[in-house]
Design a protein around this nucleic acid. Structure first.
Lengths: 215, 215
DNA sequence: GCGTCTTTACTAACCGGTTGATTAGTAACT
DNA sequence: AGTTACTAATCAACCGGTTAGTAAAGACGC
């Protein structure tokens, strides 16, 4: 799978070698791959897998389709690389704090506001890759570690035990994405009321998680 | 727009006239439209707008592409008709009960389990039609009425006022869809724990909303 | 330092299947 | 006869994927 190949390459390659190869402008494999990944991230976030266009990605990256198929094998391979890279950048960006889940949810909310393509990519993945077999180990490991952290806090009495640890974590993650997962018809209803400001929206997420934890 | 046209036609047409036209088997416009809409609902729910294939829809409906373009104008027009019909079937299927929002959320959860395509269609709509202009009046009206019901219950002291009415409604709706909006990596974490049974999952939704309302 | 050889990054043009959409025409009912 | 429901065949554009070929950068002998 091209995802594995990409990761191995980046991991094995010496930084100096990569740097020495990047001297001449306009002929840098790593830079080209980066541009293709960036362009593909925007394209897939906007249009999904089926709706994303390989030609647009190549053009926006100031490259061409053959490079995409050389580096990533296929359109699906390119999406795999995009999604895998996004997950690696995301899972550790907001470390969990089991002793202050409301703030944790607030920080997750912040990260979604700051990087809106994350939730869109995850949603496309959910819809277009459901039941598609291979789950990402990096995400599974991260989730397992978070569940463990919640479970320990529950056993120590620092968190309520009303929900099993995995469920509690899921509810927190789900509430964190509250403001970026509703249909436009709902946004229209809420936009001309209170909770229109960004600060207020963050407060809603924090308060909702806090309410979830109240004994 | 074909959506409006469809609604007007169905609204104006006399039931007896429609029935008299449906005598001969194999040549019934309403039945053909129904089969096309049903097939299109399955297709779009599974693959989205960009991923959905008009040929597959025509074949599955035992019809042909020309009929689709005759009745619905375009692929997008067909999706509009599908989404509009789904919304009409859905908005009133689960009437809101401001005095028992946890049970309301439970019933919404039930409806999502029973008709999984509803959330998928809504998510495709959210992703592929974001900022696409025309919001559905039927959904806007339904939302506004629900917000009003929540607001009245709050003013009467039967609901906490921690959240504005529109926000509280949004949180309830959002929590109702908890189990059908997560990426497969999360499902994998929770599937081999407790909360694996359908009854337990419903309980989680009800309990989460109840926690939200606790003073 | 110089010429050439090989490898690597890149490009443009193209291919074949697919897809949304059209059209001309047939069969059935009034 | 006229209208309506339907069908088969076809089209032009599109799109994922391929291929043949170019040019730049390092390797190596001298």
């Amino acid at each position: 799978m091209s995802t594995v190949w990409l990761v191995d390459t980046l991991g094995v390659m010496n930084r100096d070698v990569a740097a020495s190869k990047a001297i001449a402008m306009g002929r840098d494999a790593e830079a080209t791959k980066r541009r293709l990944l960036d362009a593909a991230t925007r394209e897939f976030a906007a249009y999904g897998i089926a709706g994303g266009r390989v030609d647009r990605i190549a053009a926006e990256a100031r490259s061409n389709k053959a490079q995409i198929y050389h580096y990533f094998g296929s359109k699906d391979g390119l999406f795999d690389a995009v999604f895998d890279a996004m997950c690696r950048e995301t899972v550790d960006a907001v470390p969990i704090d089991p002793d202050d889940l409301p703030e944790y949810a607030g920080r997750l909310h912040d990260s979604y506001v700051e990087r809106p393509w994350v939730q869109r990519l995850a949603t496309w993945y959910h819809l277009e890759r459901a039941g598609g077999g291979a789950l990402l180990p990096v995400v599974l490991d991260s989730n397992a570690a978070k569940v463990r952290a919640v479970a320990e806090a529950q056993e120590a009495g620092r968190l309520p035990t009303r929900f099993p640890p995995a469920v509690l974590l899921g509810l927190v993650l789900h509430l964190s994405g509250f403001w970026s997962s509703n249909v436009p018809e709902y946004d229209a209803v809420v936009s001309d009321g209170s909770a229109a400001s960004a600060a207020h929206r963050r407060e809603v997420v924090v308060a909702a998680v806090a309410a979830l934890l109240r004994p």
